[in-house]
Each structure stands twice: as structure tokens, then as C-alpha cells.
Simulated assay, not measured.
Amino acid sequence: MRVVVVGATGRIGSRTVARLWDHGVEVVPVSRGGGVDVTTGEGLTQALRGADVVVDVTDAPSRGQLASLEFFGTATGNLLEAAASAGVEHHVVLSVVGAESLRAGYFRAKALQEEQVRRSPIPHSVVRATPFFESVEYMSRPAAYGDVVHVAPVLTRPVSADDVAAAIAHVAVGIPLFGNLEVAGPEEHRLDDLTAKLLAARGDMREVVADTHAPFFGAEVGERTLLPAPDAHLGHETFAQWLARR
């Protein structure tokens, strides 16, 4: 089995490549640094030659809605076209829990990407992840107002990048799902509480304020919108374990 990982140098991509090697398959890491550009199509035809499976873990350079829509619309279209020409038998794409219901900000872009993949004749699997632990850290920066950080008091099961990569690799070496697999962490947290713990752990003394109108990646989220379905695949690493590793 020959698996091409597009976005192979990113946080999830590099871990997915390592996990696929553990499965004993032939892995082809693909990235812009290696001469393949999904937004222009440059190098895609050659990179996908002989591929059985394509794993798309690319991400937009900005989490804003317009930039994300432009990136995923163009990149996913180019990738699906090249995959179809190469005779790829399974297309795996990473998405986010909440994409099907929020339809705003970054979530809207991911929902439209999912639709592109589903409309394609290539058998597909969509892996939806809850927010990464790293996303909580990223989110605390734009949500800051002076010495105060505004965070929506919503429930979620944040997950480690390692657990997401393991799930993606497992899906990639299996038969196409023709649907979704949700991946989440083992514990439920409130996002504002989690942010406060993260800031305290790194010595950041800013106050975290629960704000129901604070956006998460450009979308206003309901209390349970970021929670996965009851049958979600649960990872192993807890927030405390992730913090200890850092």
C-alpha cells in the first residue's frame, strides 16, 4: 500500500507519517517545502503517481473565514482532481467536530471542504477532531484584551495531536468509511477553565473571563457544539499529561 500524506510537515502531518510507518506501509510525505503546492497544483501529479491512499492534513495559513474558504476550496479541488487522475482508491481528510452545525468562520470552510470530498467519486473517509490542546493555547492570544482573556464557556473534549494522528493513520490503512469518524480526548472540560489552567501553567497571570459571545475560530459556539458524538473514538492522553510533556 502506497499512502501519500499531503501536509506532511505540519503538526498532524508529521505525526501521521510516523504512525503510518509503524503500520508498515509505503509512505510518501508531501509538502510545499518538498516542491508540491496544493493551491497551484504544482507537483501534485507526480507526487500522487501510484498512490493507493491520499491523506489530506493540510491547513489554511489563516483561520479567518475568507482565507480558509479560498485555501480549502482551491487546494481540495486540485487534490481531488489529481487523485482521480492517479486512480487513488481512498481519500482521507482531516476536519473538525462542529463543522456540520456551525457553518461560520473556519468551521464553514471545513464544512465546504467535506462537501467537496463527499461529492467526489473517490471513496472517502472524514476524520473530525475536537480542538487540539495546542488550539487552546493558540486561541488565548487573539482572545486577549489587555490583562483579560475572553473565552466562551463551552464544553469540549480536547485531544492531543498524537491521538488524532493515530486515528488518521488507522483510518488510512483500512477500508473507506464513506462517512465520518470523530476523534476526541478522554476528558470533558469547559473551554474557559482549560484556558485558565494552561495560562497558569506557563506563568501567564492574565485573567480568563467566561464570555458567551467570544468566538472560537470565527464562530459563536453553543455550550455543547464542540462535543463529539457518543460513539466518538477517544484518545488516551489527558490534558495534565500533555502539559507535563511540555
Rank of each mutant, 00 (worst) to 15 (best):
T212S: 11
L226Y: 07
T9C: 03
V54K: 07
L226A: 04
T212E: 06
D192H: 15
A167K: 01
H90F: 14
A229M: 04
F178V: 15
D192N: 15
A165I: 00
L69H: 04
H23P: 12
E42T: 12
P215T: 04
T16C: 06
A82E: 13
T45V: 09
R190H: 13
R190F: 13
P61N: 00
V183W: 00
F107Y: 12
L227S: 04
I122S: 12
V55F: 01
L155M: 11
L227T: 02
E114H: 05
A152N: 13
G179M: 12
V25W: 08
V154K: 01
I12Y: 02
A219E: 03
A201H: 14
M139A: 15
E89I: 15
A104K: 14
A143W: 09
R119F: 09
H124N: 11
G105D: 10
A214P: 12
Y138V: 05
E100W: 13
V149G: 10
A214W: 09
K197V: 15
R2M: 04
P228D: 01
V149L: 10
L80V: 12
S125Y: 12
R202S: 13
T212Q: 07
A184K: 02
R246A: 07
E26H: 07
V148Y: 05
F217T: 12
R15T: 09
F178W: 15
I168H: 05
M205I: 07
H124A: 09
V88L: 10
A165Q: 08
A219W: 09
V28A: 04
A244K: 01
A109C: 01
V171Q: 06
E187S: 07
R63K: 14
R11I: 02
A165N: 06
F71C: 11
T39S: 11
S31I: 05
E182S: 09
A99M: 10
G43W: 03
V164M: 04
H91M: 15
S135E: 11
G98P: 05
E188L: 13
L194F: 14
T58Y: 00
A75D: 11
G98F: 02
P228I: 00
V183C: 03
T40V: 10
V30H: 00
V36Q: 07
P131Q: 04
E26A: 08
A229P: 02
T74Q: 11
E100T: 14
